[in-house]
Structures are given as structure tokens and as C-alpha cells.
Design a protein around this nucleic acid. Structure first.
Lengths: 233, 233
DNA sequence: GGACTTGTGGTCAGGTCAACCTGAAGGTTG
DNA sequence: CAACCTTCAGGTTGACCTGACCACAAGTCC
């Protein structure tokens, strides 16, 4: 247990990095995220979220970004603070008490492809996490997925998964992967267009085996929200 | 400035405590919150949110609750983590870097009335905050109010302001105070009843100068949300 | 009793959303 | 080449939600 008053306290940053890739078996798009295999106790050899102690010269979001880049070489597209986890007993057997400020991020599909798995870093489909993870990281991931699902329904963050230009069907497949259910193409189209978060590029995709779809880009954000603390690098 | 790598880092808890009281001038209900006058540098004599360093043996929420009780004698009814503020330059002139995990809470009207203002603690209407506050506390309050406004529209937290039994008009006045606009009594009634968060006690208020309203109590929470990290003491 | 105030219940028009339908525009296949 | 298949693009319909408004209920106050 960790209730020794004399014990050292550590402030750390953990990161949940979402990417979108086809599942190797089914070919369906699903969420993936990188895990790091721990090489020391506690939880030696268990998988864990990328993270590290907070550097005294970095803002929290900076620290999250550099942790992400250091472990996975990705540049997050959407970055947002999730929660601060700090229960006393969340790191049993650890020599020190750890308070983790968790950030979650979305990375773009095309950038993601350049990624080569480093040693002790592996990407996993979010429904096939090698549980139990170290610490309370299973809980953190569940919470992050819930937040992503909720947020995608009222905020245009899904664009962050896609490259510069995309068809509405691409965007719909992103939503379907996140929400894990099929969406009516026609209704989806109407909703997205009505909210004004995408704009027509005037061009169409070529080489499709069917009617070529229009290409869109995400519209420059109008300041929709009065106040936002989220960072979007 | 605070970018000295050798500098000490402190993990603190700050709290935004919302209460509902009539405004002394207009008699309209508005949000109030307690502030503490700082007695030492930095920001000596400025008003600040109640808070304190995180004790090594306490969970974050516990620490928030004990800070609230210590400074204001209130027992929060709804308690929720707001955000972790940790930019390097948020405490200029402070001898150490401070990362603050902020909680916000709602306290019940009737409990609130027992409160006697301690020295250096004062309650203020939320639109009449004595700005500028210490540190980034103005920003924190704005953020907390935004969150409260948003949350009240999709979650039955407003009940936390009211005593055990209340009329729908009482509840409506709470919503009106938070959202800062008038609501149609009839439509409000329909919405609240349809969401099933209150139940009829079978009794009516007495001694009113008009038709006596029914009394309701808040319904036992069904597990509406799949996953919640919020604490409601 | 009559005026007044607030609670309670209902109607109605407009908007939103999911389910469904139809045609357009390409490639694919015999 | 012609028939066909797939996906995009756009429209229609009905269920439901919401806000504005109306009418009555049930007390107190003068």
C-alpha cells in the first residue's frame, strides 16, 4: 500500500493515442492505440500507456506531446486533457505515490502509416487490449474511449483522423469506427453539411470503381465555443 | 518567471464551490462562491479560490472535500473534477511551480445558510468577483461556470442545490439562476417529468399565497452512464 | 366575493432526426 | 456494347422534441 506520509510523490503524464486502422482480420476500421511494455517493477513486463514524469520546465500539454513523440514518433492532431488520476492506492507496490495527468490525442491516418514499431512499443486494436495493463490503465482507456465516443457526436474532432482532403464517405467510416455502428449515408451527409465544418474543394476523387465522390476539407474553425482550454496543435 | 529546472514543484488542489442565494439588491437568485484573501506573497491581499497542497495520504477528491470544509464549513453535495492547470508560467513570482487540480462542487441551499463567514473568507455573487484574483483563478472560475451551465442541461445535477423536498418551481428557479434566463414553467415541467429524475412525494407545500405546489424529491439514480469517474458524496 | 398569483395541464406550429426512396455517375462483366 | 453493380447525391415522410401560447385550478389577500 501507499499511505506512508513520508513517501515521495511523483507527478506524471500519461497519454492515450488514438489512431484508425483496418483490422488485420476483418478489414473493418477500428481504433488502435500504442502500448509500452514495462521493463521494470512495479508491473514489470505488463503493457502500459506511454507516459513519463513531468518535466519542471514544460507545460502539461507540452509534456504530453513530447511523450507521445518520443515513444511513437507521431505528431498528435487533436490533443486534450482527459482527467487527473490520483487515488492513493492506484499504484500498489510502487515505491512512490503517482498522480497522473492523462491526455488523449488523435493522430492522422496517413501520418500514422510511417510509424515503425519500436522495441517494446506495440499498437493494439482497442477491443483487443492485452489486459490487465499496468496500474489503472485499463480504466483510463475505457474512460478515454467513452469520452471520444461522446465528443465525436457534438464536436467535429473526427476530421483529425483524416488527411487534408477526404470524401464524406471517408468521414462517415471514421464515425462508424468510433461509434461502432453503421450510419445512414444520406442522413450523415445532411448532418455534416448542415453543421458547416467541412467545405467543398470543388474536386472529386478519381479512380473509384463507382461514381466519384466530391472531396472536402475541414473548414477553418470559427470560434464556436466561448471558452476552451483544449489544445489542438 | 518559473522555468528554473532546479525549482521545486508543488501539487495543489483548488476548489470552486457554487452556492445559490438571492442577490442582496435585486432578490434574484444567483450563483455565489467563496473566496479566500491571501495573507502572503505571491498575490498577497488578493482574493483566491480555496485550496491547499495535496496531502500524500489523501485521494484527490478527499483533499478537495477537506479543503472545502476547512475553509467554509460546507459539505459539498456534488463534487467533480474540473481540470488540471499546470502551465509553467501560471504562478509568476511564486518561489515554486504549482500544478493545481481543480474540483468544483455544489452545496445545498439550506446547509449553506448555517455558514458564518470566517475571517478572510467571503462569499461573492459570481458576476461580481473582485477581479483580478490571484494566479489564474479568474480563468478557472469562468471555466467552471461554463461547465456548470453545460452540464445542467444534460444532467440532473441542479437537484444538488435543493433540500430533500422541493417544488418544480424551486427547481426551475435553480435552472434559471444557473442559465441566467427565464424558462417557461409549463415546458420546464414537461421536460423534467419526462426525464424521470424526480419523483412525487404525494405531499404539497403549505402556507403559500397561491395554489400549493406538489413536492418532489430527486429520484434514486439509475445507472444512466456506463462509466463515471465523478464522485458525488 | 372578487382580484390576484402561481401551479398544472393541454394545444399548436416549427424544427430535427431516422428510415426509406429515387436518380446520377462512374466502373465491371458477359 | 449493353446490362448491371456499386456508391454518391439528394428528396420525402412520419415520429418525436421544443418553444410559444392558452385555459383552468387552487390557494391567499383585500
Amino acid at each position: 500500500m501507499s499511505a506512508d506520509p513520508e513517501q515521495h510523490m511523483v507527478l506524471a503524464v500519461s497519454t492515450v493515442i488514438f489512431s484508425l486502422r483496418p483490422h488485420p482480420d476483418t478489414g473493418e476500421f477500428t481504433l488502435w492505440l500504442p502500448l509500452v511494455r514495462r521493463i521494470r517493477d512495479p508491473f514489470k513486463k505488463r503493457w502500459a500507456l506511454p507516459g513519463g514524469p513531468l518535466d519542471n520546465t514544460q507545460d502539461l500539454a507540452e509534456a504530453a506531446k513530447s511523450t507521445m513523440h518520443r515513444t511513437t514518433q507521431v505528431q498528435p492532431r487533436h490533443l486534450e486533457q482527459l482527467y487527473a488520476f490520483g487515488d492513493v492506492d492506484r499504484s500498489p507496490d510502487a515505491p512512490e505515490r503517482v498522480v497522473s495527468i492523462v491526455y488523449w490525442a488523435l493522430v492522422r491516418q496517413d501520418e500514422d502509416l510511417q510509424v515503425v514499431d519500436a522495441e517494446n512499443v506495440e499498437w493494439h486494436p482497442v477491443e483487443e487490449i492485452p489486459s490487465p495493463l499496468a496500474f489503472d490503465h485499463d480504466l483510463i482507456i475505457r474512460y478515454a474511449v467513452d469520452r471520444l465516443r461522446a465528443k465525436v457526436t457534438y464536436s467535429p474532432i473526427a476530421h483529425a483522423f483524416l488527411p487534408e482532403e477526404f470524401s464524406l464517405a471517408d468521414l462517415r467510416r471514421v464515425y462508424e469506427a468510433i461509434l461502432n455502428r453503421a450510419l445512414d449515408p444520406s442522413n450523415f451527409r445532411r448532418q455534416i453539411l448542415s453543421q458547416g465544418t467541412v467545405e467543398d474543394t470543388g474536386r472529386r476523387m478519381t479512380g473509384t470503381a463507382h461514381r466519384p465522390p466530391k472531396l472536402y476539407r475541414s473548414a477553418p474553425k470559427s470560434s464556436r465555443y466561448a471558452l476552451t482550454i483544449e489544445e489542438t496543435p
